[in-house]
Nucleic acid binder design. Structure first.
Lengths: 145, 145
DNA sequence: TATTGTTATACTCTATAACTATA
DNA sequence: TATAGTTATAGAGTATAACAATA
């Protein structure tokens, strides 16, 4: 897709169209704000999970994110090159890594979290606060297991 | 992405994550229901616009959909091969087409619209009716011009 | 000169298959 | 045998550049 444009009335009520456009537009804003920190969206998500939930394998991290393990290699490569995540072998299973956010990773994550919140606020600017929470709630219900 | 899985608590409130997962899941269901009719999501969207708003050029159709004109070529090719859309030159500007849904196109669109509504219902199954409308309303506000 | 549709091409994203090292 | 990580590779999907026909 190329531009934002206006919603054609024929698609105005189509959920797929609305979700697709909203997702694309939010991602555009979020990637723009994360770029100065050297982070892509997936890297930010991975760093968030590692900092919040502690050490885990690449495979498990990928499962939590809904990303294939082959895709996770490049994501963790990027985080490691930037010094935000460390790869250590898990002593209980030396096939797997114990991935860990570095202190620098936690510091950058703090800035990235602020940037992400600003991106959300920019994207949600047209909605009053109550509606923002309602949108999050509705989406969370749809994705609940 | 590969599977559905559960939402990791660290990302549960992240709008980008919620929108991305919701969009992906809805598209999965919708493409599944449209496939028996020989339609992809974009083809369904293009056919809907043409049937609703009348003849227009490929360029204009692409702009309404938020899709590049080079991408529209294959979309319209598919619709034309299936006999759902006709390409005629616009007599007022012979560089452009006047794209038109055929009667067969309108007939298939009727079935496809039913399939799309069923897909939306399946996706929204967890939400009461009032919340479904609310979700659509909130997304529409965010995308308003 | 500019624009519509087209093609060739390249780039991004992601998954499948096959490898290695461990289990 | 099976699994974690890796690589090579292939397939979508989409965009950029260049072209022909028309304006």
């Amino acid at each position: 897709m190329e531009r934002e444009g206006t919603t054609p009335s024929a698609l105005a009520g189509r959920l797929g169209y609305l979700l697709g456009r909203a997702h694309l537009e939010h991602r555009r804003i979020a990637e723009e704000r994360l770029a100065p920190l050297g982070l892509r969206g997936k890297e930010f998500g991975a760093l968030t999970i590692l900092a919040t939930e502690g050490e885990m394998s690449q495979q498990h991290l990928g499962e939590l994110m809904g990303v294939d393990r082959t895709t996770m290699v490049a994501v963790v490569d990027a985080l490691q090159s930037a010094g935000l995540v460390e790869r250590e072998r898990d002593p209980r299973d030396r096939r797997a890594y114990a991935l860990r956010a570095t202190s620098r990773g936690r510091r950058v994550l703090g800035q990235a979290t602020t940037a992400a919140r600003e991106a959300e606020d920019a994207f949600l600017a047209r909605l009053p606060a109550a509606d923002r929470d309602e949108l999050r709630r509705l989406l969370a219900v749809l994705l609940a297991p």
